[in-house]
């Protein structure tokens, strides 16, 4: 019996872990490129969830079909953020960069609260609903779809970064922007692309989360916090690091919730972060 519960917890943790990894990798990609932490990342997630909700509620569009639309929308938002804000503060002190993205986060969150009220909203009918039993373990179908979707998106991103010419150009820019620029890589466009892709990641994750998680203006805060922890844990800028850290956080959340006390699960995750960065300040897979 206990064994079943442990397996159940581990598998649920694994499913959420892939979603966390997808959220974290978007953040990590942007940081790797230009050493800016997007503190509005959670708000981008929230916007994507609301987009999925409104498409479902107003037009009856199923979240799974809304996915490409949301991803495209978030991609555009990311590029707009780069050209509208980030580009102008690229050489500003870190504090100004933090404040600019925090300002954007506050603006987006408050706008959502103003437009759509703080009440949580849920997508009640979706193509993926209910739960399935596999070998005595019950798993929510939306969670399974979300984790498979996240994993697929992650794999696509990984292939894009490591195999395509544009992806290699992105990596080159991340490694040395001056050298990349001398090689004829349009650095500014790479930054914009990084913001677009990073935001599209969170757009995909948002739609997948919206199939089982109610959306409210504050929803992004927790996921963003977990994403910061995941990114620093994996090492800022490391793609595989964020996959590993996302999975680790999913496991810690599920197991700590079961072993210790659900209300302390984030304390455990945050403490893990502190232990890791104190022992290894560059994160598990980070480079300095």
């Amino acid at each position: 019996m206990t064994q079943d519960i442990i397996i159940q917890a581990i598998i649920s943790g694994l499913l959420m872990g892939f979603v966390y990894a997808l959220i974290a990798v978007g953040l990590s990609l942007i940081f790797g490129l230009m050493e800016i932490v997007n503190f509005a990342h959670g708000e981008f997630l929230m916007l994507s969830m609301y987009t999925a909700f409104w498409l479902w509620s107003l037009f009856g569009l199923d979240p799974l079909f809304a996915l490409p639309l949301c991803a495209a929308l978030m991609f555009t938002l990311g590029i707009a953020t780069h050209y509208g804000i980030i580009r102008h503060i690229l050489h500003a002190p870190m504090l100004v960069q933090i404040c600019a993205t925090f300002g954007l986060a506050i603006f987006l969150r408050a706008s959502a609260q103003f437009l759509w009220t703080p009440d949580p909203r849920t997508i009640t009918t979706s193509l993926v609903e209910g739960r399935v039993e596999i070998l005595g373990i019950f798993l929510g179908l939306p969670q399974i779809v979300a984790s498979v979707g996240s994993l697929a998106a992650f794999a696509l991103l990984y292939l894009f970064i490591t195999r395509s010419d544009t992806g290699l150009a992105l990596q080159a820019t991340a490694q040395d922007r001056q050298a990349a620029s001398l090689m004829g890589i349009p650095v500014d466009r790479m930054y914009a692309l990084g913001w677009g892709i990073g935001s599209a990641c969170v757009g995909v994750a948002g739609v997948l989360l919206a199939t089982f998680r109610p959306v409210d203006p504050e929803v992004g805060a927790l996921y963003a916090l977990l994403a910061y922890v995941a990114v620093a844990l994996g090492g800022f800028g490391s793609i595989l690091g964020s996959l590993f850290a996302g999975l680790l956080i999913g496991q810690m959340e599920a197991l700590a919730g079961w072993l210790i006390d659900p209300s302390y699960k984030y304390v455990v995750i945050f403490s893990l972060y502190l232990v890791v960065v104190v022992l290894r300040p560059q994160g598990l897979f980070g480079r300095f």
């Binding site: 503060i89 404040c99 925090f102 300002g103 506050i106 603006f107 969150r109 408050a110 103003f114």
Partner: peptide, 19 residues
Amino acid sequence: AVDLIIYGALIVVICLFKP
């Protein structure tokens, strides 16, 4: 939340034009 909308926008504007 109107105050926070103005807040957020103001902060971004200051970061951009008067860092």
